[in-house]
């Protein structure tokens, strides 16, 4: 059968392969090469070695964006997962209107990042005005917590869905057995449900971590990096280096930052892959 299919490769492989070359493989290779160049367009590149990387790492806004992003990843990951798990626990118990609540909590997930960012900018600015505090564009701390709240609003529903699927796959007999043995509600949760949920927790943790690392639209729409690059995440910092600064050196530096960013994300994903594989062996 393999031989017969092989003859048809132009029909099966070629369309996606061509698009994949245009849309990913060639731009990726060019991108890696250009990170070692000085350029304003793809054609006028001159090779200058690793000086782009040196400038990128020395750039104060970039290292600030990195630490700001790390803090954001930690806080948002914890908040989103605790929120999602709590809602999932309540909605898997016997309460009225479960499906309606599920619908409500999941809905923000479908709204695009730009729209979300503006909705929350208007809302948070109004709250800040009432509290007589500086607006989002003037206060990086408010910008940080604003982004955390926004991400919770958007992502809790998504994680809730995954946690509900995980909770429903725990056999009832296991929980009944624990209850008969005299376990309290908290004991049942920590000793029975939580260990059984570990696969879902791994998935959700890594989804939130990569989402928060790659975040762009929401960051741009909510604060746009203001004040003075103080609320920039990595993705927005790279975008700004490319398109917000004038001078022929910045594109190369931006591309070098993008390569570093890409490496960080790839490493996180490899760790994830390894951890999920280990989990599969244990089961």
């Amino acid at each position: 059968m393999e031989k017969a299919i092989k003859k048809y490769w132009p029909i099966f492989l070629l369309p996606t392969l061509l698009a994949f070359l245009i849309g990913f493989i060639i731009p990726f290779i060019q991108g890696v090469y250009l990170s070692f160049c000085r350029f304003t367009t793809v054609r006028d590149a001159t090779f200058i070695g690793i000086s782009n990387y040196a400038t990128a790492i020395g750039d104060a806004t970039f290292s600030h964006a990195f630490w700001y992003n790390c803090a954001f990843v930690v806080v948002s990951t914890i908040a989103i997962n605790l929120g999602g798990l709590a809602v999932a626990l309540v909605l898997t118990s016997a309460i009225k209107g479960r499906n309606a609540f599920r619908t409500v909590f999941f809905m923000p997930n479908l709204i695009g990042g730009i729209v979300l960012g503006y909705i929350w900018q208007i809302l948070l600015n109004c709250v800040l005005t009432i509290l007589e505090r500086p607006l989002l564009a003037l206060d990086a701390t408010a910008g940080f917590w604003g982004l955390v709240i926004l991400m919770c609003w958007q992502q809790i529903g998504y994680m809730m869905i995954i946690y509900i699927a995980g909770l429903q796959s725990i056999p009832d007999s296991l929980i009944e057995a624990a209850e008969i043995d005299g376990a309290t509600k908290w004991q049942t949760f920590f000793k029975v449900k939580l260990p059984m949920l570990m696969p879902s927790i791994t998935i959700c943790l890594f989804l939130t971590i990569t989402n928060s690392f790659k975040l762009f639209d929401q960051n741009m729409a909510l604060t746009g990096g203001q004040p003075a690059h103080q609320s920039e995440l990595l993705a927005y910092n790279i975008y700004y280096t490319f398109y917000g600064r004038s001078g022929p050196q910045w594109r190369g530096i931006g591309q070098a930052k993008a390569v570093i960013f890409c490496l960080i994300v790839v490493v996180i994903s490899l760790i994830q892959l390894k951890m999920t594989k280990e989990k599969e062996v244990q089961q």
Binding site: G31, L34, K214, A258, V265
Partner: peptide, 28 residues
């Protein structure tokens, strides 16, 4: 190799290819 490349492309952030991809789109 194609399968691994596909899995890899899922991970790569868009900022990595945004400039080269848009100039590619212009050329073609």
């Amino acid at each position: 190799a194609l399968y691994l490349l596909c899995a890899f492309s899922m991970v790569v952030p868009f900022q990595m290819v945004m400039f080269t991809l848009s100039s590619m789109a212009d050329t073609l």
